[in-house]
Simulated scan of single mutants.
Amino acid sequence: MTERLGADAAGLARASTLLHAGALVAFPTETVYGLGGDARNGTAVAGIFAAKGRPQFNPLIVHVADMAMAEEIAVFTPQARALAQAFWPGPLTLVLPLRKEAGISDLVSAGLETVALRMPAHPLARALLETFGGPLAAPSANPSGKVSPTEAHHVLEGLSGKIAAVLDGGACAVGVESTILSLDPPTMLRPGGLPAETLEEALGASLASGGNAAKPNAPGQLTSHYAPGAAVRLNATEKRDGEVFIGFGSGPKADLTLSATADLVEAAAALFATLRAADKLATARNATAIAVAPIPETGLGRAINDRLRRAAAPRN
């Protein structure tokens, strides 16, 4: 059985013990729950892929406690260091050259010469990294391609019996995964919890767009991802027969809403939980699809729409 650990010293100690033994522990970040394993233990990392049913060509994000740990793993240019100082801890992942002597499992980087690094802001995630004393590879704690978890019970719904434990820190505040950025030139590989406009202001330049679904160099680039069981229809302005309707702001009466006040921060935090609720409602009603109202393509709306487009893509 998967243990459910409390957000206290005993829970952190147990989680650290399990991780040192090569077991997997899910933990909360400010974005979503991550499925953590020792990034230097190839067996543990292989266990992450097995538990999720994740394609092994898809890289993982390495979570670190501080800059000292980050610089042991990757090469930081002055620009990369400035971005880390500005936005870490927080929902930004940087794809940087991997130090070969860092001891990171080849499975983490999918055999590439780069590594995706992040320093989470959630206090429980930071406490776990400090207690464990090393880097943790941690994709979202859900079966591959399915809706990401923003609460501990979401993790258990998908991975109970497949992982050792989940560290319960309550609901995640941001609700969509981190923004992923590569440099030289600065390129947005995945929109996320840090808006592109904020990064562009810090960089003093526009971001290029990148990412290759056939050969990803960072997580979250697969075309079909974040998918509920029911089909998803986007930019819906009305509810059709056989659908569950998710609204945003004012508009037609909705079964569920991401934000009644059209608040993108509230919508991002609620996105995955709302998709899960809509999927359960569709099953209960024998509905075949989930329709989602239009979301503005600005700020966090870019990340929300990115996840919705992948949820609506043809299934693999």
Results as ranks from 00 to 15, higher is better:
I48N: 01
R4M: 11
K100C: 11
V108C: 07
A116W: 11
L107N: 14
E101W: 12
G193R: 05
L275D: 09
V232I: 02
I304S: 09
F27H: 09
T274M: 00
R54Q: 12
E297H: 11
G242Y: 02
A152P: 13
N212H: 10
A231I: 07
A10I: 11
L275H: 06
H63T: 10
A82I: 09
R309E: 01
L128I: 06
G242S: 05
E3I: 05
T179S: 00
L107Y: 13
V147P: 03
P149G: 14
M1V: 07
L129P: 02
L308N: 02
L275G: 09
L92M: 03
V75M: 10
A230L: 05
A196P: 04
L275E: 08
E113A: 15
S250P: 12
S144L: 11
N235M: 07
A311M: 02
A102G: 08
E177A: 00
I246H: 03
A287I: 02
T298W: 10
D263W: 05
G145C: 03
L199R: 07
P294Y: 13
L183M: 04
V147Q: 09
V45N: 05
L124D: 02
Y33G: 06
Y33D: 03
I304L: 04
S259C: 01
T223K: 15
G249C: 07
G133T: 08
E200W: 06
L258C: 09
M188C: 12
T187W: 04
A196Y: 00
R81A: 12
